[in-house]
Amino acid sequence: MITLKNVRVERFAVDGSFNISRGPKTEVDVVYCEVTDGTYVGRGEGTPIYYEGETADLCAEAIETRARQSGPLTRDALLKTMMEGAARNALDAALWDLEVQATGTPLWQLAGLPEPRPLITAYTISLNDPDTMKADARAAAAKGYPLLKLKLNGENDLLRVAAVRIGAPDARLIIDANEAWADVDVGHMTATLKTLGVELIEQPVAAGQEDDLMGVMASLPFCADESCHVAEDIERIATTFQAVNIKLDKAGGLTEAIRLSEAARARGLKTMVGCMLSSSLGIHPAFHLAQTADWVDLDGPALLANDRDGGFSFEGGRISLPG
């Protein structure tokens, strides 16, 4: 029988400050848990979806509550007994890891995913004044990142993107409005951004207001983030978005994220596999799903002051498994 061995909240400092339209973050709290079958131990980590009201303490409480319930502690059971979110993600990851330890079978084989290889990952340029974003983009390009993701807020965004383009003239660009374009002429904005080499617009409008994109003559594809958490959300957003950002903390684990990826593909949507701020443990399952994605945004550990020991390697703009 599988039981919960340990659950706790851990805090990681951000390298500098991580700024988006909702405000800055200088540290991130994650929920860490371990499960055991009496012989082997599996580990998992989740980052609370703060805009959904989650906190690390609440996630830890949810994990402890689920562990006290009757019934098996399995991935399939979690889908039926826990809401999506970071708590379920941490438990789901721990259960996958336990099976890896117990069977000696790599995660990619257990999950029916491609054998992992190094991947180009986006590197996030935090929301800031244009000159600072230009300098940050120049520094990221100097480290070898060929794909940059810019955080915007609906104010002076064109100036920010133009500045980044000067700082990193050869970089591919993705922008993330984090729901902040309520007062922006989205059609005109996308046309101008296309001339600056932007290739994707993430979450321009607030979740629940997807219909605002109906009829917009956009020059660039839209990617749903806050608007899409689980597989059942795909039918609702498939007519206004052309891609979906799959985050395991939103989906509630790799088990549901695989279902979400398959549902998106079935509706002709492209996929990005992204992450919250997290350690390498937090993105380990996501890295395996990212092998199937059109865009990869797994720079969470690279934005921390210090990662866990034995974390992912970030070199030349690519993320690679340790060792």
Rank of each mutant, 00 (worst) to 15 (best):
D76E: 15
D76N: 14
A77T: 15
L78K: 04
L78P: 00
L79G: 00
L79H: 05
K80G: 04
K80I: 11
K80Y: 11
T81G: 06
T81E: 15
M82V: 07
M82R: 04
M83F: 11
E84K: 09
E84M: 08
E84I: 03
G85M: 01
G85C: 07
G85E: 02
G85H: 03
G85Y: 00
A87L: 11
R88L: 11
R88G: 00
R88E: 08
A90I: 08
A90E: 00
L91Q: 02
L91G: 00
L91R: 04
D92P: 08
A93K: 01
A93N: 09
A94Q: 05
A94K: 02
A94R: 00
L95I: 10
L95R: 00
L95N: 01
L95W: 01
W96E: 02
W96T: 01
W96V: 08
D97T: 07
D97W: 01
D97M: 09
L98P: 01
L98T: 02
L98K: 01
E99P: 02
E99T: 15
V100E: 09
V100G: 06
V100A: 07
V100Q: 10
V100W: 07
Q101P: 01
Q101L: 09
A102W: 02
A102Y: 05
A102S: 15
A102C: 11
T103A: 10
T103P: 04
G104E: 13
